[in-house]
Design a binder for these strands. Structure first.
Lengths: 194, 194
DNA sequence: GCGATACAGTACTGTACTGTACGATTTCTC
DNA sequence: GAGAAATCGTACAGTACAGTACTGTATCGC
């Protein structure tokens, strides 16, 4: 019952790998069924057996490539856990694959509701992790419950995403450390410049 | 000599406005010559008289929409000037036009060298402004010459861009203030967590 | 007003891609 | 080994778009 035909899994993986490579190397506009056929060797009719339209394939490609982040071990405190989380984010953003696909997803989510949902699920998963981390920080007395998690994530992760997108400054664990250090420093200065 | 035929300027503006609206509302893939013809009333042959290919038109649309930032008045110190700069960035990112076009530019610059050059020029202009601002900060003794401007800009502007892209947290001047406050707080804590 | 030029409108070619249909072949399951 | 199912290969219709060519009309500069 749980056993699936290996042919199905095989072609599905082949097509998704090929399609992802095309998107990474040439952009989403270059993802045509013919291009996948030429590069993967999988027959045209076979691809349409698995995906009803080209757009459905594109959605699956993104879903296939979205990085999965883990919750840092519970014994870590806020600072150590957040550092580990940010380092993981750096790792994914530095990887050429996601480095190319993230901007494409951001650009398309405004017009393709199906891709918007992919991005939504991704942010939900990461939101759960960050919520866990901020709970640790609150228990440590670093900040109160009034802290806005979404806003804090923007402050912490924003610089990393910016570095990945602009390419002006290298995206490294050190940058993540700097972002975290600034965030922590800002906490101990609750009434800034007023 | 310096006078140009008003017909040229008129159709050029009409086409660029229409094309920009199409890109903002439906994405770059929807920018076809026929779509511009239908919406603007400008004839097909006229468009091809101004732009040799559709891609050239797209490049001009981006160039046309790239926001221009001003250097804050020289009498302002680092903090006030940077605040003003960041607030201007917030203004452009919150505007629907650039909010949609920036991700598209980020996604396409990896594959279209001509668009990469558009983005390059944009970053160059902003780089000049930020270099000016960091010089002020250095003269004020806030930091030394070892500060990396590109990296600092990532730390300061990154959260704003992240907020604009993700849509999870509102992009407001207050967010800019928080980013700046964290950056300044990090300065007075030169050896973080080591 | 007049010549020059930009614009409108239409028709056309060529191409690239989507999605369907169908028979032949391979590969899996049992 | 036999039947089922997935895959291959090809052919085809339909569409959307890029870019060209050409004629007639409106608008500019002088």
């Amino acid at each position: 019952m749980g056993t699936t035909d290996p042919r199905i899994a095989r072609t599905r993986a082949t097509v998704l790998d090929t399609a992802a490579a095309i998107v990474v190397e040439q952009g989403t506009a270059a993802l045509t069924v013919d291009a996948v056929v030429a590069r993967s060797g999988v027959a045209r009719s076979t691809i349409y057996r698995h995906w009803p339209t080209r757009d459905d394939l594109l959605v699956d490609v993104f879903e296939y490539c979205v990085p999965s982040l883990d919750t840092p071990p519970p014994e870590l405190g806020f600072e150590a856990a957040m550092r580990q989380f940010l380092h993981a984010v750096v790792g994914h953003l530095a990887d050429e694959k996601w480095n190319r696909m993230l901007p494409a997803l951001m650009a398309l989510k405004a017009y393709e509701p199906t891709l918007a949902r992919v991005e939504e699920r991704m942010e939900q998963r990461q939101g759960k992790i960050s919520a866990d981390l901020f709970t640790r920080g609150e228990h440590e007395g670093l900040f109160g419950p009034e802290l806005d998690p979404s806003r804090a994530i923007a402050l912490l992760v924003g610089p990393l995403v910016f570095a990945a997108l602009s390419g002006e400054t290298p995206i490294t664990p050190e940058l993540a450390d700097a972002s975290l250090a600034n965030f922590l420093a800002g906490l101990s200065r609750p009434d800034p410049a007023r």
